[in-house]
Design a protein around this nucleic acid. Sequence first.
DNA 1: CACCTTTCTGCAATCGTTTGAACAAACACA
DNA 2: TGTGTTTGTTCAAACGATTGCAGAAAGGTG
Lengths: 342, 342
Amino acid sequence: MVTIKDIAKLAGVSPSTVSRVVSNHPRISAETSRKVKKIMEELGYHPNVMAKSLVSKTTHTIGIMLPRPAEELFRNDFFGELLRGIVTQSTRMGYDVLLTTATSEQDELGAISRLVRGRRVDGIVLLSSRRDDPLIAYLNEEKFPFVLIGRSEAYADVLMVDNNNVQASYDATKHLIAQGHERIGFVSGPPNLILSHDRLKGYEKALAEAGLEKRSEWIVEGEFLQESGFRAMSLFMSLPERPTALVVIDDNVAFGVLRGLAELGYRVPEDISVVSFNNIPLAELATPPLSSIDIGTYQLGYTAVQSLLRLVQGEPIHQNPIVIPHRLVVRESSINPALKRS
Amino acid sequence: MVTIKDIAKLAGVSPSTVSRVVSNHPRISAETSRKVKKIMEELGYHPNVMAKSLVSKTTHTIGIMLPRPAEELFRNDFFGELLRGIVTQSTRMGYDVLLTTATSEQDELGAISRLVRGRRVDGIVLLSSRRDDPLIAYLNEEKFPFVLIGRSEAYADVLMVDNNNVQASYDATKHLIAQGHERIGFVSGPPNLILSHDRLKGYEKALAEAGLEKRSEWIVEGEFLQESGFRAMSLFMSLPERPTALVVIDDNVAFGVLRGLAELGYRVPEDISVVSFNNIPLAELATPPLSSIDIGTYQLGYTAVQSLLRLVQGEPIHQNPIVIPHRLVVRESSINPALKRS
DNA sequence: CACCTTTCTGCAATCGTTTGAACAAACACA
DNA sequence: TGTGTTTGTTCAAACGATTGCAGAAAGGTG
């Protein structure tokens, strides 16, 4: 391994000079700089990142914790896009991304703590936001820089990047109402996620505003799995009064919904309309193509990193939370060809 | 930040002793160990990873390069599964995962080189294997530990974890032949991938063995995109003699195939049967459900890390390449209800 | 020419660990 | 009691960089 000393020796200068050449110190003569750089080039010198970190107390790395397999939200195309946004922006800003995962629920804090206390990373991106996430409390306590993709109810001053999920869900519901639906159901996710909560709220708001009835038997919770959507359908469709349209928390779940409806012999959108969230690439290919709220997944990750690194580098934060715009993409699954009233 | 010296001072011992307590050195008295551990606990001491790495020349981190957006193979459920396998096994073996990405094609080598020369990671997992991948050449040259998910034609002694893609494709094709098909097409991926090449070979082998005709107009190359499958169909279906069955390089492409066929008014599997590769969760939900070769994606990632870390830790490699078993999952898309001959 | 700046480079301490070697104390044995 | 071994601990040098301070050389000024 070629070190700064080797370069120094060959160039006939001191290690300090080499170091200053590397970091473009102003008081290095052009000649010395050229000479040293030439030798670095020849030997293929790269500074040892560990040594650098040790003295600079900075790692140029951000950490992100892969949600455990149980957290099905991320077993999803959506996650790949998010990750790509995160990594791309990190790289562009000169940071690497360290991925960890907890092996068990109680280990989550341990995994994060390893990163934080070991000074392994300069900042952390938190993905999942449960309503009482202990990780948020921990990082807040430690005053360690982090950004939340999603939002926190308990802490107002943490950095957050989120959609306006209430509004998004409101828009989705409103769209169904505009299609003439009066009996609209909601297939939700795990109730401890803020996400589920927010989207439910937007749905309720739209119903209330339109003077439509909110029926608890038309609302069902589940996981971010196709099975959840599938099961929800056997439930809904056995009701004496069935909804004619559905807002679904996630595309994947919506796929299960579509399949359930198909198996039960219902046609979409003729018998029942569907709108969901995330707009993953496959939404377009579903049968029928799925209307979905595009939440700007890539941008979510991208922006989160950008504002985290601002925080890390001590730049002022202008805006918090940052809200990534959403957009309803209407496809066949929610276009009611013959508007029918119940 | 609490360091080893702080602990030493409080415990009334030398830093070396504390270090040896941490690393469970045998010649530390039980009493000292207890005392030191207690203080570490109280202060929430975690060793500084950078300092440790500096002296041990080991980072307990493996690197993996996120394929560029252009590499569509990984814009896919498949990638998430692979990543999960990688990260899970790394964590289990006490390693972190560093994610980088290249911002451009020519930067790929630079990105890897930053990891290698900066001694940022102990080993690298390479994902994509093009037929003449310069990264393989580079890592080989540097004698840096790495594992290839896929295989290399140029280098026999690199660590590889792969499916037997020739066999898998042979199996898929054989299955279609068993269903009575005699005119079988192949929708391939980019020709510079070994993967494409292998799967094509298995297809050809099965055809040859059954004495069936291989027609170049029934073979088309493309990207790992739905569009590719879609386009392939307008091509195939405009031929005077059309295939009655297709082997498709990837589920995503197959979705495009299904959609193309539907739009052109063909029924699957009645008019044309389809088998593809990867068996992503959504394959089951396609209309009709898609027959697919399960390549053990999670296990691919998992095993790659396992053998990479064996290499890193100097354990002997018993087997190379490691072949992950595949399995044909037959669903409706390839069950020909009325076996028809051309 | 003496003196003061400015410009460039080197010395040495430091970051938080690890680890071989030295050493002291305790113990075993004849 | 002297000698040898075992056990537990400390010393000090390293790992590969950075950086404040000091000093040398060069240039500017009266």
